[in-house]
Each structure stands twice: as C-alpha cells, then as structure tokens.
Design a protein around this nucleic acid. Sequence first.
DNA 1: CCTTGACTTCGAGTTTACTCTAACACTTAC
DNA 2: GTAAGTGTTAGAGTAAACTCGAAGTCAAGG
Lengths: 136, 136
Amino acid sequence: MYTISDIARLTGISAYTLRYYEKIGVLPDPTRQEGRKNGIRRYSDQDLRFIRFIHGLKQTGMKLEEIAAFVQEGCLLADDYPVMHVDETLKKRIEILDEHLEHLEKQMQQLEAVRNFTLEKRAFYVNLQAQRGPIK
Amino acid sequence: MYTISDIARLTGISAYTLRYYEKIGVLPDPTRQEGRKNGIRRYSDQDLRFIRFIHGLKQTGMKLEEIAAFVQEGCLLADDYPVMHVDETLKKRIEILDEHLEHLEKQMQQLEAVRNFTLEKRAFYVNLQAQRGPIK
DNA sequence: CCTTGACTTCGAGTTTACTCTAACACTTAC
DNA sequence: GTAAGTGTTAGAGTAAACTCGAAGTCAAGG
C-alpha cells in the first residue's frame, strides 16, 4: 500500500494535484487507513495502475471534465447500484473509451504528419549546412 | 496570395490569434500589400505551409515560447545576417527540431501505450456486458 | 515531547493561451 | 459615400489546470 506522497513520487503528479483530482472527481476516493473518515489515503497497486491510466488519458488530451465523467460512471458501477442501470453504465463507459480511441487515432495520424514535416525541415537545414561546406 | 481571414479559414486559427502569434514571435511578419508598413498582410502558399507546420508543432505539444525561439532563429537566417552566424543559426534550428522529434517519439510511444491500455479496459467492459447476457 | 507527514476547508495566485473590445485610421467595392 | 474588411495599440476578460498557503487537527516514530 502507498501513501499519497508515494503516489506523487511514482507518478510525477503532486500531492496537491492528486487531492485536487479527487475533489473534482477525476480520481475515485481511495480507501483510508482503518476506514476512518479522515484517515490517511492508502493506495493499492491496482489504484496506482488506475491512476497511471487516468494520467495517460489526460496526457493524450482528454479533458479533466471528460475524465471525471468517465470515472463517475465507474464509481456507480462499483457500488451496489441498481442492477437495471449497470448495462447503461457499461455502455457509457465503452462509448467514452471509443470516443477517446478515435481521438487517439487522430492524434497518432497528426503526430505522424508533423514528424514527417519536421524530418523534411530538418533535412532541408542539414542540406543548407552541407552546401556551405564543412565548418572550419 | 491570401489575406488574414483566408488563413484563418484555411487553418482554423482565428485572425486574433494569428496577429497574437505574430506579436509574440510565433509567426514571422508576413509581407504587406505594396510593401507599405501598415498595409494588409499578404500570405503566400509557402507562408500557409509554414503556418500549418507551426500549428502542427503547437498541437503536438511544443510551447509557444519554444516555437517563438525556433521561428526567431529562422528570421535571422532569412535576412542578410552576418555570414559567420548562419552556421550557428542552422545548428540551433536543427537542435530544436531534434528535440521536438524526440518529444514526438515519446508522445507516439505514450499514445500507443494509452491506446493499448484503453483497448484492454474496453475489452474488460465488453466482457462484463457479455457475462450479463444479452439485453432484452 | 516533538517533529514529520498526513488530514481538512477555503480561497487566493499563477501560467498559458487565447479572445475580444475599444477607439481610431485606411482602402476598396458596390 | 458607406459598409466591409483591413490595420494599430492597449488592455481587460476568460478558461483550464494547477499550485500554494493558512490555520487548524491528528497519529506514529525516535
């Protein structure tokens, strides 16, 4: 089990930000030491993996608001939520992920395009350099 | 030749933003109609391509400040800048591009990782759905 | 016992990147 | 000639995502 500063160290997200994310629903409430209300946050390996996943979504352009929507669906899912709505919740989560997958595809394409363009530019400059002959 | 609103339409960057970019050095000063000082900005196809390239750098995570540094190197290059410094300028531009290329590689890897993770998550939810049996 | 690190709420400050308005000038097309 | 589109400077406003400090509490370790 990890503390909040462990998680901060392991993920590169500050403790301030982790609490902030929790407050705005971007991260689910972690379990607390001894289940007390204001006990120390205890994160499992699974929690760590989840936080890294969320961080990945964020770093690939998903807005905090969108992430929060996704996470909230999952929180409903985890509890003894009325069975009738579980299918809805699963459907929504899948939809959100599908949308992000599309976004990821677009980003990959753009990244590829920018990379090619950048390589071209680079080659152009290198060529200019070569034309000027070796530098003494 | 294009006007600023043509460029806005063609790139999706507002005229406000284009002028702003120009002011902070993210875009080079374009030529003006009849070479007058405050004449209408005239953009060539080459300018358009360059703006798209810059926009690509921005959209793949280069900060405006970094882009400005890159562009400023280029502006020096374009003028009758002391020949002794041209090699320096070329070297710097190539360095900046190389750094961004590294950044692009990292982003691609992360995108790939997040994509895989997202696909896994998606599969997990689909599996849950399947286990609950077909929905009436 | 006392330091350290965790917890809370609340709210202010920062950074980045726009986004727009005001107020005024100029040119071109209808 | 007047409207549309362009130009200028300066500055205010906005939004997202932090980032931090204050002020107070609590619990464990040396």
